[in-house]
Design a protein around this nucleic acid. Structure first.
Length: 197
DNA sequence: TGAGGGATGGCCT
DNA sequence: GGCCATCCCTCAC
């Protein structure tokens, strides 16, 4: 199973977004590998994309990671309470990223249950199971990802993505979520997801 | 099954 | 001071 390297991320953002579907996201927490399959992503395409944090060339302390090389984690706080995980794409100076919006848990799921609800997996309600990792804030909570992971190199051993060559799924696309402020960019079909079984 | 509202804090103007 | 790439619970239906 191959770890994705910078040449994978250093490509067109829409292509990287689509290609991330079905891959395995791993957070190595003190040797315990919390692993999920990526099921939903959104592309944010740099200074011409009104929904992107770097639209118009905005370059601040927060967005600095996006201005760097591909293959790094961009993590930010949203609504004062939740974190969102992005993967930086394209060559340095083109500040683009892919937001990870949805995951399917695979390994160390009990640890994720404690991260999310401070409960063991077997005690979770159907409601909790259904809403386990199906949102950007939820999945960061489940994986134990926070601000400290901002700027991590995805070629390292803490946070990385594996290709196990799963291809038996269909890719759907739609409008990105919750970016109504972005005017015409709100209509771009830059959200990609795997059909639910 | 879906809508509605509160929590909550960094970022940017 | 207002805006947010969100979540979760409540309350109708």
């Amino acid at each position: 199973m191959n770890k994705l390297l910078s040449d994978f991320y250093n490509r067109d953002t829409l292509e990287v977004a689509k290609d991330l579907l079905g891959k395995k996201l791993v957070h190595n927490m003190n040797g315990e590998k919390l692993t999920c399959r990526i099921t939903e992503v959104e592309a944010y395409c740099g200074i011409t994309d009104k929904a992107c944090h770097t639209y118009g060339g905005r370059r601040t302390k927060r967005t600095e990671v996006m201005w760097g090389s591909a293959g790094y984690a961009y993590i930010y706080l949203i609504y004062g309470m939740y974190y969102c995980l992005n993967v930086v794409t394209q060559e340095q100076g083109q500040p683009c990223a892919v937001l990870i919006r949805g995951l399917e848990p695979l390994e160390s799921i009990d640890r994720m249950a404690f991260n999310r609800y401070n409960q063991s997996l077997s005690t979770l309600s159907n409601y909790q199971l259904k809403n386990f990792t199906n949102g950007p804030g939820k999945l960061c909570q489940a994986l134990g990802i926070n601000k400290n992971h901002n700027g991590l190199n995805l070629e390292g051993d803490v946070l990385y993505i594996l290709d196990d060559h799963i291809t038996d799924f269909k890719i759907h696309q739609g409008k990105r979520i919750n970016i109504g402020y972005a005017e015409e960019a709100a209509d771009y079909l830059w959200r990609f997801y795997i059909e639910k079984k």
